[in-house]
């Protein structure tokens, strides 16, 4: 059944790794942007939450 498996070549592995790292960095950057941006926009008002 070894035909069912797809083996990545070294070049493909390297490319996949590079894409994965870039995607992780982009996602992390977006999380930081939303977090920091929310503080900048709302400031201390973020703590005011009328129930």
């Amino acid at each position: 059944m070894s035909n069912d498996r797809v083996t990545l070549t070294d070049k493909q592995k390297k490319a996949q790794r590079s894409r994965s790292i870039a995607l992780a960095l982009a996602l992390a950057a977006f999380v930081i942007i939303v977090y920091v941006g929310t503080w900048a926009k709302l400031g201390a008002n973020i703590l005011i939450r009328p129930m």
Partner: peptide, 12 residues
Amino acid sequence: SIGLSEASASDY
């Protein structure tokens, strides 16, 4: 089509 891409992050 099965995703054996050789594109690196720099291509994007």
